[in-house]
Simulated assay, not measured.
Amino acid sequence: MSGTKPFTAHPLGATAAMETAICALALRDQWLPPTLHHRTPDPACDIDIVPNTGRDQGAALKDLAKFNGEIGVQGGWQNHSGADYVGAPIWDVWTMIRDLDPKHIGMCFDIGHSTIEGGLSWPVQARLMEPFYVAVYLKDFYWEKTAKGWQPLWCPFGEGSVQRSFLTNLKTTNFAGPLSQHHEYKTLGTGKEMIANMKKDLAKLREWIA
């Protein structure tokens, strides 16, 4: 978190436009503007306010991509849904990895989490990230109204909100990496029941990609 007011003072009616532009440029360039003139931190306020000097937020990922290339490792970023995850909005991931070589750091695209976050806009997210795919993660969910409001609950593959057209579209791309099916629903069971349910999910996946 940082404050740019020391740069701009208080431009009254122009404030919203200027701060929107600053935020857009910070996202585009992966650079955090500093909080100028910060002298004495408050020990009771343990917040990183980027004091006095801006920070290249993409530097760590660039260094990691370079290291991966040197040792022959391909990293993958899995998107998750929810307010606690960087990259839950898929555009965040794109801004962070768009300039990196997918051979070094790419995208483990999770269509379940993407559909939770994007709803009907999941095709937009899929098209945006497709050039970076290193793996595709498959699981399904439905929405249930609970005491805490509407919550996504994982379910057997093919019984929820994930659409078959995702796999149909995937077959038209150049993706040749692995498909990873995840079984995270509560009714999966244990032992023989679990194995039977996993086989059922796999059969549905094979039906969808046939």
Rank of each mutant, 00 (worst) to 15 (best):
D99A: 07
Q163K: 13
H113V: 02
G82F: 01
R164D: 08
D140N: 15
Q163R: 12
G75D: 02
L167Y: 03
A176M: 13
V50N: 01
R164V: 05
N52V: 08
G177M: 05
G72T: 13
V124D: 15
N52W: 07
F175N: 02
G106Y: 04
R127A: 15
H80K: 13
P89K: 00
D101R: 00
D56L: 03
L167M: 08
I71N: 10
C155S: 02
L61G: 11
Q78D: 10
D99S: 06
Y137Q: 14
A126K: 05
I111A: 00
V136D: 13
D56P: 01
T168F: 03
I49S: 13
W154V: 12
L64P: 12
G75L: 01
N174V: 04
S165T: 10
R164F: 10
A135M: 08
N68T: 06
I90L: 10
D63S: 15
S165I: 05
G75S: 04
S114P: 07
G118L: 01
H113I: 02
R164E: 10
L61Y: 15
P131R: 05
G158F: 05
Q151C: 12
L120I: 12
G112Y: 00
T172K: 11
A83R: 10
W150K: 13
K62T: 14
P152Q: 03
P178I: 03
D101A: 03
M129T: 01
G106R: 02
N169L: 08
T115Q: 00
A44P: 11
T172G: 08
S81M: 14
L153H: 11
F157C: 03
I90H: 07
W154L: 15
I111K: 00
D56T: 00
A135Q: 11
G54N: 11
